[in-house]
């Protein structure tokens, strides 16, 4: 065996740039094992729904459903956004641990890596949405047509991609585990301002005009549109512009990332 040499011609490149289900499985298991992730993404939004969802006037009509349904969709959006942001921030944490560099010594294509991370973030977002919806169903107060439940859940899921990008961006700007310390309270504030927790009609004119420019406003209007049948044009502009800004910010920080870690 001593004369055996390694023959480069016999070596192959992995298909799909290294994209594979084993990694997806391990990444998902990782997220689900993390107690902090579970509490902030699955338990907290459901608990908020339990406390807000039964407030006075829950049975008032709202669009094609009732106020409880309106709150349910909002809480699902909050939970999914938080989850996606946490997933995005993990990219930066992994970089600070040198894991990204380790992965660059494998055939894994950066596009395949981002794609796998996005799928994990969306799956976790879907779990957060499902948790809120199941709690909402068990409460038995939210009422809306079945297709509205489904359509708003799917729309919410795609709205959360904005916050996955925000997570990556903040994760790069504030390295390490501190990113979530900023994202957690930050998203809660933005949710108050953007009308996720309290309808904008409750605010003064001044606050409301500021809210129209904040990143949670657009996505929350879009997520609730299947229920309310209302969607101001500037809400769509808001959602598109913030998505673009966060993706650009994340891409900018990632491309600046030449430091050897």
């Amino acid at each position: 065996m001593t004369t055996q040499t390694i023959d480069p011609t016999q070596r192959r490149v992995p298909s799909l740039g290294g994209f594979n289900l084993t990694v997806l499985g391990i990444e998902l298991r990782r997220m689900l094992r993390n107690r902090r992730t579970i509490i902030f993404t699955l338990v907290l939004p459901a608990a908020l729904l339990l406390s807000f969802g039964g407030q006075q006037g829950w049975d008032d009509k709202s669009g094609s459903g009732n106020v409880a349904a309106y709150i349910l969709v909002s809480m699902a959006l909050y939970g999914a956004a938080l989850t996606a942001a946490a997933g995005g921030a993990m990219v930066a944490v992994e970089r600070s641990l040198g894991w990204s560099r380790q992965l660059r010594l494998t055939p894994l294509n950066p596009v395949a890596y981002i794609l796998m991370k996005a799928i994990v973030a969306l799956t976790m977002g879907a779990l957060a949405i499902a948790a809120v919806n199941i709690v909402g169903m068990l409460m038995g107060k939210a009422e809306m047509p079945t297709h509205v439940w489904i359509v708003s859940a799917i729309v919410t899921l795609f709205c959360t991609l904005t916050f996955a990008a925000l997570g990556v961006f903040v994760g790069y700007v504030v390295p390490g585990e501190n990113a979530m310390q900023i994202l957690g309270p930050g998203l809660a504030l933005l949710s108050f301002l953007g009308g996720v927790f309290i309808p904008l009609s409750q605010y003064s004119d001044t606050v409301r005009h500021i809210a129209y420019w904040s990143p949670m406003y657009g996505v929350s209007e879009i997520a609730r549109a299947p229920l309310t049948h209302e969607l101001p044009w500037f809400a769509v502009v808001n959602a598109v512009v913030w998505f673009g800004l966060f993706v650009a910010g994340a891409a900018w920080r990632m491309s600046k990332d030449t430091a050897r870690v």
Partner: peptide, 17 residues
Amino acid sequence: AISRGLVSAVMQTGGLL
């Protein structure tokens, strides 16, 4: 060469989750 698994490296620190 990396994508064919022909080159590996062992870092001194980090690189683990």
